[in-house]
Amino acid sequence: MTQPVAQPLLTPDRTDGTPLLVVENLVKHFPVRGGVFNRVVGHVHAVNGVSFSINRGETIGVVGESGCGKSTLGKCVIRLQPCTSGKILYEGADITSLSHADMMPYRRKMQIIFQDPYSSLNPRLTVNALLREAIKFHHIVPTSEINDYIVHLIETVGLRPDVRSKFPHEFSGGQRQRLGIARALAVKPEFIVADEPVSALDVSIQAQVLNLLMDLKDKFGLTLLFVSHDLKVIEHFCDRVLVMYLGNLVEELRCDKLHDEALHPYTTALLGANPINDPDQRRPLVVLEGDVPSPFNPPIGCAFAGRCPKVMERCRHEMPPLESKHHGQRVACWAVD
């Protein structure tokens, strides 16, 4: 009799425990100019000291309201944007301030899929040219094999090889998002930032793209930072989730614990405001009072204080620290002990 083969629990190759990526205290401020002399009059605090790590093969979700800094975080982590301060370690090496030349090998390993499938592809390049460019630049395969490799890539993302001579505008939204994925995969990356890869797509096409990402994760052992404002998608797709509010990481927890163990009032509000796909489970949606504060002039204490149902006096002048709980959960809230 054959013994059942032990199945890897979540995804393969997350064995040795060294995180693939460590982010320490990442800060990103954008200067805001104004006045007659166009001087810097202040800063948008887009990301405010965020720390986390990702293991190989893991998928981490990032969720939060529009403008809370999700895209900025994703771009800083792969150094598509310089950060104001903080540290980024990739496989233990500090890449925060590597020169352009020294950064080159990492550029290949880290890729991004952009939020908008309509504007992120160069409209003047055919699919073939689009993919060839990156493959040649990073010497992914010998020149003689490039054509075969492109066909293989296109098939991997579920398109027909005859699309090679087409331009981006000849594709539907879902197909364009597949091209964006093909372009990211072309250089054989290890780590991908997927910035709202399905938000612009129809529900039925969302499922196709999510399935594709899931297959690729299994096949290539990819590690993903998956940005989305849709909690249902995050829950379905990710292992852990980072909840951001106004540039701050307010909670981190495992997706399978999200419904039962979320502690931060903002995370609970997000869960409560998320409409359930079931007419027999109607419930009053959680409605928060107050408005989203501005990242231009963030409050001194807890950023959520203006809308938080559990707010206390202390919250208004003191920023709660991010504290560790069980199972790697971390929460920043004075009301949680």
């Binding site: 979540l10 529900v203 039925s204 969302q206 499922a207 999510l210 399935n211 899931m214 297959d215 249902k232 998608v233 829950e235 379905h236 797709f237 997706c255 399978d256 999200l258 419904h259 998320n274 359930i276 796909n277 079931d278």
Partner: peptide
């Protein structure tokens, strides 16, 4: 084709 609320079928193909 929509993910179930509560991540009931986490990680499964849709």
């Amino acid at each position: 084709s929509i993910p179930r609320s509560g991540g009931k079928e986490r990680g499964k193909r849709l």
